[in-house]
Amino acid sequence: MFLRGKRKHVYQHIIEDLKRQIAEGKIRHDEPLPTQIELARMYNTSEITSRRALAELANEGIISRTRGKGSFLKQETERTAFNGLQQRAELSQIYFVYNNEIASAYHHRFFSDLLTGIKEECELHGIPFYIWGMDDEFQMPEGDDIGIILHPHLKNGNEMPLDLLRQWKEEGKRLVTVHFYYPHLQIPYVIVDNFVGGYLATEHLLSLGHERIGIILTGKSPVEMNQEFALRLQGYKLALTQHRVAFDLELVCVLDGERESEQMGAEGLNRLMSLEQRPTAIFATSDSKAIGAIKAAGKRGLLVPDDVSIIGYDDILVSQFTIPSLTTINQNTLLLGKRAAQILLFERKSEQMRDEIVPQLIIRSSTGEAKTASPEYST
């Protein structure tokens, strides 16, 4: 498992964002701050985390908290009083840079929400935002005062050469990578925590009583796949371990393909349901594969979720309209885009910055309680 470096906690990001809003006059003395429940919803975190953020602001003397009334900005607090508030970097514009050959992939919700998040954060601070498609020569936009949010994925499923990334870093380009990370290069990054996403999907099925859970992944083999699917597999394994369910390699179906497709999901379901001891639930690691699996289940005369529960990953638009509607993982990439832009705009030591966005479980109709337990697969 990847060992994460030291990074800011979510409560610290909440504190910084609230300080920014105070400094910009968006939070007034005569109006209460959002409650800890509201903050938890706004930042997609727990009430424990939001409560700590408010407590830290109170400890700094910035707000006062009154039981039954709420939290208020202290009258004596001035906008310039925040020593911990980082000043906005002088950027003339921000670019989202991607491989020009795979533009069609950016219609996916992951990227539409990502781009919307970047756009909203740039508009909030009056910074122009553009997208830039690179050709095979990897030409970057020019300028010393521009910020670059880079998605280093190529049309063949590979990633940009490390030497090229290292060169851009040495040239002083102001980079943030999204969806992929390179800790040894000390390039700041923001990713969705695929490990947690895989865990949430699997734990949901386990909580419904399923123990024999298949997983459909994209890659060349169980040990040769890209970062996102490898981490989802690790989350799957951890959930099984915590529920004392044995990991069974027979239930891991890995299919090769450049792009996610319903055909992959159909093939994965047919393989898994052809096992002598077939699974009662399947975690398809993309919505496209999950939708294909649901259709294939119907062709085999299986009811979802009565005969097999299926969960996807991505929460694409059509997932809520399938029959049955698809239980899935929303990657929360609107926040991913906002955080990437914030790092470029506000972090003084951005080369040390890294952030992981927590995905969210969306429960719909394609998962249900297991009809039969499988105690022989417990340890």
Rank of each mutant, 00 (worst) to 15 (best):
E171N: 01
E171T: 00
G172N: 04
R174E: 14
R174P: 10
L175H: 05
V176R: 00
V176E: 02
T177P: 03
V178R: 01
V178C: 09
P183V: 09
P183S: 09
H184P: 05
I187H: 00
Y189G: 06
V190K: 02
V190N: 06
I191C: 13
V192C: 09
D193C: 11
F195W: 11
V196Q: 15
V196H: 12
V196S: 13
G198M: 09
G198N: 04
Y199L: 14
L200Y: 03
L200W: 00
L200V: 08
L200C: 08
A201C: 07
A201N: 04
T202N: 07
T202V: 07
T202M: 04
T202W: 01
H204N: 10
L205M: 10
L205I: 09
L205E: 02
L206P: 04
S207Y: 05
S207Q: 15
L208T: 10
L208R: 09
L208I: 08
G209Y: 01
G209C: 07
H210M: 02
E211N: 05
I213E: 03
I213L: 12
I213D: 09
I215V: 14
I215A: 06
I215N: 00
I216M: 05
L217R: 10
T218R: 12
T218D: 09
S221H: 01
E224R: 13
M225K: 08
M225I: 00
L231I: 08
L231M: 14
L231G: 07
R232Q: 05
L233S: 03
Q234Y: 12
Q234M: 15
G235D: 04
L238N: 11
A239Q: 03
A239M: 06
L240R: 07
T241N: 13
Q242Y: 00
Q242C: 02
H243T: 01
V245D: 13
A246C: 12
A246I: 11
D248L: 12
L249Q: 15
L249I: 11
V252S: 04
V254I: 06
L255T: 04
D256T: 12
D256L: 08
D256E: 15
G257L: 10
G257K: 05
G257Y: 02
E258L: 14
R259I: 14
R259S: 15
S261I: 06
S261Y: 01
S261M: 04
M264R: 07
M264H: 06
M264W: 00
M264F: 02
G265V: 05
A266V: 03
A266K: 04
A266R: 08
E267N: 12
G268H: 03
G268L: 02
G268I: 03
L269W: 06
L269I: 11
M273N: 15
M273Q: 15
S274M: 10
S274W: 04
L275K: 02
E276W: 00
Q277N: 15
Q277T: 14
Q277M: 14
R278W: 10
